[in-house]
Simulated scan of single mutants.
Amino acid sequence: MYEKILDIAEQLFMTQGYQATSTRQITELLGVTQPTIYYHFKKKEDIYYAVMLRLSKDIEQNLTKIVCDSTPDLERKLITMVEFLKKKHPFNFFVMMHDVQHSLPKEMTTKLYQLFSNSYKAPFVRLLTENSPKLRESVNIEFAVSQLFILMASYLDNTNPKDNISEMIDLYLHGIYRT
């Protein structure tokens, strides 16, 4: 039952966000009562953290696998990483960040940020660090990855009608300025 709760909760949290998802919705989709959920989790934020922990492990494992792939092409790896995130875990990044910052206690926000940093962000930082000789010397890799996530956000929630991730990565890496 624990995994079933997480499956349904993940689906709801990733599409509606934390704020708009209720434990009542989770129980209705599962066809169980509220006490069934509260047997496994004390409160909604505990469900959210368990969902994010499970997602983070999967994300970190798969993104790291892409980074370690023998394909030497930075651009191809970035495209593959973004495509993986879009396919495997579509979510509305802006809703998620708003929920984390405004709907959860500070302690939980800190734990979630740590999960995000280690599983989502770290593989991108590693990839750019390993490819730093190809980057301009003035590039701050942490900042560059943060900007990439802002750019990626509109592609991850599956509302973008044209799937032009390759174009987005090309623009990210090469800019618009003619050299």
Rank of each mutant, 00 (worst) to 15 (best):
T109K: 10
L171V: 02
R54T: 05
I150F: 13
S117A: 12
K65E: 02
H174D: 00
I47F: 04
K134Y: 05
Q34M: 13
E10M: 08
R126I: 03
D58L: 12
A9T: 04
F124C: 01
M96H: 12
I37E: 02
I26K: 02
F41E: 05
Q25Y: 04
E167Y: 06
S56K: 09
M152G: 04
S132D: 04
S132M: 00
L6K: 07
T21G: 06
K57R: 15
E130S: 07
R126S: 11
R76S: 09
T80A: 15
I165G: 08
I165N: 01
L171N: 02
Y2F: 10
E137M: 08
E107A: 13
I59P: 03
K87W: 15
I26A: 04
S154M: 11
H98Q: 12
Y38Q: 04
A153L: 05
K77D: 06
L128K: 06
I150N: 01
Y2D: 11
G175L: 02
E3L: 03
L6Y: 05
K111C: 01
K57V: 10
K134C: 03
K65H: 08
L173Y: 03
Y155T: 11
L127W: 06
Q11M: 13
L104H: 12
T33S: 14
I141T: 06
I26M: 04
L85F: 10
T109C: 11
T64I: 13
T129P: 05
L29I: 01
A122N: 09
C68G: 06
